[in-house]
Each structure stands twice: as structure tokens, then as C-alpha cells.
Design a protein around this nucleic acid. Structure first.
Lengths: 214, 214
DNA sequence: GGCGTAATTATACGCTTGCATAATTGCGCA
DNA sequence: TGCGCAATTATGCAAGCGTATAATTACGCC
């Protein structure tokens, strides 16, 4: 029996470049936070989930706080990228574009409990961590500005003025945020597509436009 | 010198009834969570803040989890009571009532960072704790139903039908939630009263009513 | 194909945590 | 006024935490 060694021996391993390891550690961190909250993301649990031993974390991140910060940044840039990718696939006419953007924001896969849980976790750090606040502010404004642009285009296409698009974008963004949170926090509480219908109708009235329900 | 004892001596204390102690421990817990997140609310920190020694906590709460759950329930019922008290002080005409309710929901003292931080902390537990989810669901529906009632009254007073008040209440609730969160998360980002103006205008369009800007 | 080195594992330390239990003391009550 | 008991303090413990450091091993390179 070649497997019968005298001791348990040292665990074998394969080397993966810095890039891959950092990504694996970040993914493991986000998974654990989403499933069990920040207190579940211990160094040992992260290492176990990532398939390495705890010591390795220190090789890539000076401190656990650094790892969590990197995970948060990765999460946020991921959301931003997803939003941008959505935009690229939307139709061309301004009204349909806006409607598609709204629908995507309150439908799966954007509305999922994991995302809401992660968002709540990061939200908690925003008031007292300056770096977190900066990231929050940046991503919040990026999304809102994108929405504001779509709103302005739709209003112009309808031959309407673009007076208070800032207020409309703030309100529209708040509406989407609130619906997204409830859809994620209370899954099963709303019919399939109900959030989308509510969002489209609410925006139609908010902008006094007829958005296609498609 | 009567103060010069041989040893430090045992710390003196005064007895307070169960009611007062439990309230003090709950308040200390909420303060700590609001300031430093759940991980700051350790048994020792809570006891220090409440002016007692750690052992006493075990005398009133079988486990720390019990204390946190009690604190969450206290927080939520406090918010519900505050909302009810607001309602009692509103004017009598349906439109003014609705406008006052909306304005209160997105103005100080309702919009404060402490409240948003506590809400985010509890939000994080909702997806994986059944008891938390039940409380969240109950308070969410209570607020939404209250809003739905005010909306229906306003529509009736305007001689309008009350067809889809459910959808309007869901959207309106989401709008208020989103504005409340951003006001609390990014204090100083919005002019004084800006949130109120945005909320009133958005609701006016949403309901196709002229709400008084008060 | 063997050597050097960076990636990885292994071990250990000090600290904090939640919780248990024993010792004390303030205070209502007769 | 002093007794009795519950409220409170004091002490201790086992487990888990993040982190430091030394030992090992996979793998690129000449």
C-alpha cells in the first residue's frame, strides 16, 4: 500500500499565481459574509472555503481588514460592471431603454438575497469607515447619474423639458433601491414580475410618460 | 482618612428592579451596535456601558443572543410607536395628513445615522434568522398598510377610485425607504428639506394628486 | 535534471470572547 | 433593627480569534 505512510504527512498543494489566489480568497470572504454575516468570515473559515491554510492569507493580505476591504471593492465594482453590461444590451429607443433598465434593476438575477445581504453588511460600515463611505458614494452616484441620463433622454424624446431631472433621478433611484431591498429581503412575498410591473407603472407616473411594459 | 482602605474593595452598587435593568442593558446594546456594529456589542462592553459588571447580564438574559433579540424587538416596537405618535399629531384633511406623514418619514429626527445603522444591522440578520424575518415582515407590513390607508383616503377625498392602492403603497413605501436610507447614509449630501420636497413632488405625481408642500 | 526561491503548510502565542460559578451585599419586610 | 434573599460583583475557564514565525515543498529556470 503506497498510501500507508507512517504519519499523516504534510498536506499537498498546488501553486496558483497571486491573481488567482487573491480572487479565491475574496470570493470565499464574500460567500461567508453573505451566508453568515461578517462574524462568520473568520480567517480560518475563509481559508477552509478557499481550500488553503490560514497562514496563506497573511501572505497576500497584511491584515484581515485589508482582505475585507478588497472584498468590498470587488463586490462593488462587480455590481457596477453588471449594470454597465446590462446597459449595452438594451434596445435603442430612449423609452424602451429606460424601461429595460428599470426592469433589470428589480428582477432576478439583480434581486437576490445574497446581494442584499452583502449590501446590508457593507452599509453597516459606511457610517464609520471613511474608505467604505467613499466607495458607497461613488457607486451610488454612478448608478444615479446613469439613471438620470436615461431619464433625460426619455424626456427629450417625448418632446419634454429636462428641468428637474436631478430630483427625478434621486426619487427614481430611491424607488428602485427600496423595491430591490424588499424583493431581496422578503423573497416569495411578491409575484414573479410584480416588482417589475410596479416599478414601470410608478416610473410612468413619476415622469408622466408612457413606458412600455414589454 | 476614611477612604484609605487596605484593598480596593468590592465595588458598591444599587439595586434596580428587573424592569429598569433590562431596559438599561437593551439601551446599551443598541447604542454599541449603532456606534460600532454588532461586533462592538460584546458582553463586557455592554456591561460597562450599562454601568454594571458582565455577570449581571446572565442574570437577566440566558444568553447574549437573547439580549440582542430583545434589543431588536425593542427597537422595532419603538419605531412603530413613533410612527403611530406622528400620525396622531397630523392634520385632519386627508391630503394634508398624507403629506405630513410623508414629510415626517424623510425628515429629522426619523432620518438619522443611528437609526439607519441599526436598521442595516438588523437587515443583515433577516435572511437567515426566522425570528428576525418575522419581526421585519410585521413592521414592514404595518408601515405599508398605514401608508396604504392614507393613500386610499386621499384618493377618495379627491373623488378618485381606489383601484391599485396596493401597488401604489408598495411603490410609495419603497420610495420612502430609499430616501430615508440615503439621507441617513450620506448626511450632508442633501439640502435641508430637499428630501421632503422630492418626496412630496414624487408622491404628487405617483398619485396624480396635488399634495400641499406645507 | 538539479537548484533556488517564492508559495504554501504547520505550529504556536497572546488576547478576547461568551459563559459558569462562587462570594458578597443592598434592601424589603417583620 | 436585624434577618433573609435576590441582585450584584468577582473570579475563572475553555474555545476561538487574528497574527507571527519557522519549516517544507512545488515549480520555473538555466
Amino acid at each position: 500500500m503506497s498510501a500507508g505512510q507512517s504519519g499523516p504527512g504534510r498536506r499537498p498543494f498546488v501553486r496558483i499565481g497571486e491573481e488567482g489566489r487573491r480572487a479565491a480568497l475574496i470570493d470565499a470572504t464574500l460567500d461567508l459574509i453573505a451566508e453568515g454575516g461578517p462574524q462568520a468570515a473568520t480567517v480560518r473559515a475563509i481559508a477552509l472555503r478557499a481550500g488553503v491554510t490560514p497562514g496563506l492569507i497573511r501572505h497576500y493580505f497584511a491584515t484581515k481588514e485589508d482582505l475585507v476591504a478588497a472584498a468590498h471593492e470587488s463586490l462593488m465594482s462587480g455590481l457596477t460592471d453588471a449594470s454597465g453590461a446590462t446597459l449595452a444590451e438594451l434596445p435603442d429607443t430612449p423609452l424602451a431603454r429606460l424601461a429595460g433598465f428599470i426592469a433589470a434593476a428589480v428582477s432576478p438575477p439583480v434581486t437576490d438575497p445574497r446581494g442584499v445581504a452583502l449590501w446590508a453588511a457593507s452599509m453597516q460600515l459606511v457610517p464609520r469607515d471613511a474608505a467604505m463611505r467613499a466607495v458607497h458614494e461613488k457607486t451610488y452616484l454612478a448608478f444615479r447619474d446613469r439613471l438620470q441620463g436615461l431619464i433625460a433622454d426619455a424626456l427629450i424624446a417625448a418632446g419634454r423639458g429636462t428641468g428637474d431631472t436631478r430630483a427625478l433621478a434621486i426619487a427614481g433611484n430611491a424607488l428602485l433601491d427600496g423595491l430591490w431591498i424588499e424583493a431581496g429581503a422578503l423573497p416569495g412575498h411578491f409575484r414573479d414580475g410584480e416588482m417589475k410591473d410596479i416599478a414601470i407603472k410608478a416610473f410612468s407616473r413619476l415622469l408622466q410618460l408612457e413606458l412600455p411594459e414589454g
